[in-house]
Design a binder for these strands. Sequence first.
DNA 1: CCCTGGCACTCGACTGTAGCGAGTGCCAGT
DNA 2: ACTGGCACTCGCTACAGTCGAGTGCCAGGG
Lengths: 340, 340
Amino acid sequence: MGLDDRKLAVLRAIVEDYVATQEPVGSKSLVERHQLSVSPATVRNDMAVLEEEGYIRQPHTSAGRVPTDRGYRLFVDRLSRVKPLSPAERRAIERFLAGAVDLDDVVQRTVRLLAQLTRQVAVVQYPSLARSRVRHLELVPISTTRLMLVMIADTGRVEQRLVEMPAPIPADDVLDLRRLVNEKLVGVFLSETPPLVQALIDDSPPHLRPAMTTLSTVLLETLVERHEERLALAGTANLARGGLLDFQGSLRPILEALEEQVVLLKLIGEVEPSTLRVRIGDENEIDNLRAASVVSTGYGPGATIVGGMGVLGPTRMDYPGTIATVRAVARYVGELLAQN
Amino acid sequence: MGLDDRKLAVLRAIVEDYVATQEPVGSKSLVERHQLSVSPATVRNDMAVLEEEGYIRQPHTSAGRVPTDRGYRLFVDRLSRVKPLSPAERRAIERFLAGAVDLDDVVQRTVRLLAQLTRQVAVVQYPSLARSRVRHLELVPISTTRLMLVMIADTGRVEQRLVEMPAPIPADDVLDLRRLVNEKLVGVFLSETPPLVQALIDDSPPHLRPAMTTLSTVLLETLVERHEERLALAGTANLARGGLLDFQGSLRPILEALEEQVVLLKLIGEVEPSTLRVRIGDENEIDNLRAASVVSTGYGPGATIVGGMGVLGPTRMDYPGTIATVRAVARYVGELLAQN
DNA sequence: CCCTGGCACTCGACTGTAGCGAGTGCCAGT
DNA sequence: ACTGGCACTCGCTACAGTCGAGTGCCAGGG
């Protein structure tokens, strides 16, 4: 598979033109639009090779060429130069995120910002509980047998949950419970709480034992098992932009995939240290998304990563632009989180 | 506009057939499928009248008839018999909602349930803060100058917000602040808190004055002004079901509308006592939804209403079925809320 | 007076044919 | 190794013709 420089240039040109026009691109218009300084016939020969190698294909005989998933992959890996963001875009990001009042707000704004800048569907994961530490646990009496458990993570994320107690519980006991759980759990990574919670039951004074047992169950459910991850989504309307040409006609599978939290997490969640990941068409494990591409990355204060964010669009998308935007937004959000 | 019984029967038949088949319905197939006991010619005459009155129309000359928005309206108001839910559906509702552990969970499950049963887009409003009372306010110290304010409403809804204090604040003061705000505000409707909050500042001891002022600002922002209403959405994939025939080709405007909280609230939010509301096509004030119909209702424990829920679909939808489902789900959720 | 059967008419959907043109593959020539 | 030329493919569009579902209208009968 020796692809000389010119063949690569041809591939790049094809990708760029196709992304821009959405139409199969032919040899003639290629030489016109780009300075390839060779004749269409030569380009045709190169195209034949590229097709043989699986980087491009013809929708039908005697039509222009269209990049394959493999072609996009090569383009992303070796052919696209990073497209620096315009100052206007940078300013937009800063302005948009500046007004955020708390974590929920940051996430909401981020996801909208991403959707708007990339004109695609955006997904942002709330800082993962598994990667957070407990900052504080609060117990609020609601009635004699009911407590509200509130957990505040160091990322600023807050989870709450109603606890139904087996028996009425005096105010003093509530204070004791609160003290005990905070002593044991504050500062601990949520993923590491389960053994400590067990110890919490064993070590608590006998009269608190039943209450603590109930509390522990809920604690584990809330902090470790149940909706451990939350997501924000925006820009679905962008799916319907490309006049149904993208996504081979039906939005159905895409919309279905977007409704599944688990699926989205898979897309966004696999976080590797500050790397940006691009999944193109077939590379997606989820069948429903075989016609889509996903650009995702992790984010967090400093070098640590607390969650993922990303963008989903047609395989025929502006990779350099999208990649630059996702990267920039993730960095800004990271800085914002570091300030708190 | 004297429409005798047979003409109404014809209209009903047209609506039912069109909803079922999605194709314009002609006089001949009409008499075949329904027992109208008259000839096609007679039906044609009736149709002519119905068309003149604006209840049906022809997509093109010499095609079958299709109901107009006005036709659907008449159908909903006077022609559709209530379609009782099947026992299976009732059981599904109960089973689906039974496992809910707290308010968030109830809302999440409800919205999915609605989407699934009606095979349409579902929207559920979280219990409105304006219609809730304060059950408890909690202040949790995060750092010397930061507090986390947690508000628990009597509907079970919880809101939290970070408060940035002007100066470091001693633990005792936090306790005092907590006591003061709870004394004044517990049991009060959130919509009625603003004057009380002002009084709170005036009545607080001098050394707490600055802290209380900051706190009040955030209090008002959180409880009254800012994201006062929250919504859950599900079933967007159902929009892409009707093969693009519904919604005259483009999902774009619908998806756009669904991304706007404000718009959705308008759809769902106007709550009248236990009434169910149906908005058909043009009757929607929002331009983007002129091709859609919305069935919405309020819900809440007992007779009180704390929020809205509803379903959005093509004007060509199964009104009796959808109405029955929405009504039933709202009632179940109301009962569920009453238990807490 | 209302309903019915009959009839002529309309018009969209579908089919088949023809011409156009963008695009290709191949080959011979430089 | 590149180029120009040439024959070929095939999707797209336009056009004509046919088919059939459905209509409107009218005259006749209960």
